[in-house]
């Protein structure tokens, strides 16, 4: 069911083509199309009347953007953006044409990679061996078992594992930054000691991945790393992302 309004997935150059069998948000899925205005275009579809952040809609948004970004630069919109009608979209395209083109040029050939670092549960034995305070708490908990002792021990372990992971996360960030065109800190994610997005050239992505994998091989018992990519450049469409550009 299509409601009123136009769902906007992102902006591309006017020459950009939709990938074959593109699928939009909604159930049944809305059919995406390209709305051209001058030298830029918006990828749009009808807006489902009951649009919410359902899993299938988030995936439809994401997958369409992934397909589009394979074919050229793309400025992804935040999920759930709806314009009143086609004219409103065309008006914005016309007003923003120069700025959009500039950002599209800046992101041409680029992808986003997101790295999250979490404490690793694998290094427990090492932590207990190396950390005198935790060894003491563990001995206490063994001598006088009980809920309080367990909580003290467990809390100290959790904090120490987080600190170790955070230290490693700073190291991996320092190693990766020279391989990226720009970096952008992500939102705080509970459970993660670091959440950073990198703007990386498509050509350089496999060596970027190798750096992450080598680091994970070396330090996997101190930190768990999860790298997601290549992604549309969600974190680098704003002007401030441009400011975060790393020189050299």
């Amino acid at each position: 069911m299509t409601g009123r309004g136009i769902y906007i997935y992102g902006f591309v150059r006017a020459a950009h083509r939709l990938p074959a069998d593109s699928v939009g948000v909604g159930a049944p899925a809305c059919v995406p199309r390209i709305l051209r205005q001058g030298s830029v275009a918006a990828v749009v579809s009808g807006a489902p009347a009951d649009l919410r952040a359902r899993r299938r809609d988030l995936l439809a948004h994401q997958n369409l953007l992934l397909g589009l970004s394979d074919a050229g630069p793309l400025l992804p919109m935040r999920f759930g953006t709806v314009a009143s009608d086609e004219d409103a979209v065309r008006r914005e395209l016309a007003v923003r044409e120069a700025g959009l083109l500039e950002t599209l040029d800046r992101l041409a050939g680029m992808i986003e990679a997101n790295l999250k670092a979490m404490p690793s549960g694998d290094g427990l034995a090492r932590l207990v061996r190396e950390d005198a305070r935790i060894r003491r708490l563990r001995d206490d908990a063994r001598r006088r078992p009980g809920y309080e002792a367990d909580i003290r021990l467990g809390e100290a372990v959790a904090r120490a594992l987080s600190q170790r992971a955070a230290g490693q996360a700073r190291r991996v960030l320092a190693e990766l930054t020279p391989h990226a065109v720009a970096t952008c800190p992500g939102a705080d994610v509970p459970g993660c000691v670091m959440n950073v997005s990198f703007l990386v050239g498509r050509e350089g992505y496999s060596s970027f991945v190798s750096v992450v994998n080598r680091f994970a091989d070396r330090c996997g018992d101190l930190v768990d790393l999860r790298l997601t990519g290549p992604l549309p450049c969600y974190s680098f469409v704003a002007p401030e992302a441009h400011m975060a550009r790393v020189d050299g």
């Binding site: 988030l58 999920f79 314009a83 939102a187 997005s197 969600y234």
Partner: peptide
């Protein structure tokens, strides 16, 4: 990233 990043244009809801 999908929910909090990406482009925002204030005239669109």
């Amino acid at each position: 990233l999908i929910l909090d990043r990406g482009m925002v244009i204030d005239v669109f809801v």
